[in-house]
Design a protein around this nucleic acid. Structure first.
Lengths: 209, 209
DNA sequence: CGGCGTCTCATCCTTTTGGACGATGGCGGG
DNA sequence: CCCGCCATCGTCCAAAAGGATGAGACGCCG
């Protein structure tokens, strides 16, 4: 006798991609997409309603970020299995997703059978990292750890603000802003603000879009 | 009697999305995917080989940019029909794609039936713009037109280079760099280099990744 | 031919940035 | 209780950036 197929929740803001993935999954006798969601809020609702065996989740969605969704789901059920399926592979996003409790991190250029294999692995209790993602993490052994204030400063910096404006927004002196900036330059290996923004963007610490 | 189904070439570096879209298209009796490609080079090869009735094309691909693919295809056959199917909607990419000869610009969050409708429209000789894309273009009536030197300066600027380095790389005086920068600030509505990078990135004039 | 835009460069000057010292208070862990 | 990390703020100074103003050369288009 055969057991019931594993129940999959599919979350991505691109309907076209959902269709494609759903098709691949439903093609497998042991897997079945039981719900879809197009943003983070819907994802949580769907998860509450269905309690799927595994959730395929995009980061970068409207309304609620993917990492946050992972966190909420794992809060509801610490044994929940979430696979992050995304386009981007900055070391920051990868490590944040894994830290939040994702079991796997795969990129959207993955082949269909590899994705299916990954889902089965995760259902079997294993974890899976896309080679590219693993490499990014490895090189990130020298991971930058920014303090809250440094991150705040960096965010405003990337927004094109001047030191004076940053100081005023954070309600600190311009001198302190310079200190944070000096630390940022140090940690990011940059020598100027524009270079810092470039490096931070590459690493996924801030986003300009 | 019925005519042969229209032949579609599908180009995207995400295999999963190709599967999804192919599935949707092949579901329609009057459409058929006759080839797929995962990057720009393959796309040209496939086009040469098959001369499809319509090409669905992602911008942002490895090896060869989508806009360039549009250009090459339209060079081969000025009546070729290309639909750009992408995730991003910066006014710069939209207008460059249309200028290169794309017949339609749709985003990946489009619904399946809308995509099919768009393909039929284009096959019928019409054009189609995603509402979001159209809006971006409209607001971009005040489109910035950068001169070649300004763009070169902007690119190096976004790479975090100092004026002196930019001057040396472009083989001009630092003074001239400042002039270009001043013009850039003027056109982008920025007052500092970091702000200029932010605005330029948002508009799709440069990319940091 | 006579603008118009682009690219080039200059000088003068102010503001901003970033580096080099240093210094205080708080807080958590060994 | 001390050490290290974080956050805060100072001064002094040199370099970089940016604004004001002006100008010569070239090419294109009406």
């Amino acid at each position: 006798m055969r057991t019931e197929p594993a129940r999959v929740l599919l979350v991505d803001d691109h309907a076209l991609l959902r269709t494609g993935v759903a098709n691949i999954i439903n093609h497998e006798p042991d897997l079945r997409v039981i719900a879809e969601a197009g943003n983070g809020i819907e994802a949580i609702e769907a998860w509450d309603q269905h309690h799927p065996d595994v959730t395929l989740l995009d980061l970068r969605m409207p309304l609620m970020e993917g990492v946050e969704v992972v966190r909420v789901i794992r809060e509801r059920d610490p044994s929940a299995r979430v696979i992050v399926l995304t386009t981007y592979d900055t070391d920051d996003e990868i490590s944040r997703a894994l830290k939040a409790g994702a079991k796997a991190y795969v990129l959207k250029d993955i082949a269909a059978d590899a994705l299916v294999g990954c889902i089965r692995d995760v259902l079997a209790g294993k974890t899976y990292l896309a080679p590219a993602a693993a490499a990014k993490l490895a090189e990130g052994v020298t991971r930058v750890q920014l303090t809250p204030r440094e991150l705040a400063t960096l965010t405003l910096l990337a927004d094109g603000k001047a030191n004076k404006e940053i100081a005023s927004e954070l309600d600190i002196s311009e001198r302190t802003v310079k200190t944070h900036l000096a630390h940022l330059f140090e940690k990011l290996g940059a020598t100027s603000r524009t270079e810092a923004v470039k490096v931070a963007t590459r690493r996924g610490l801030v986003r300009l879009d």
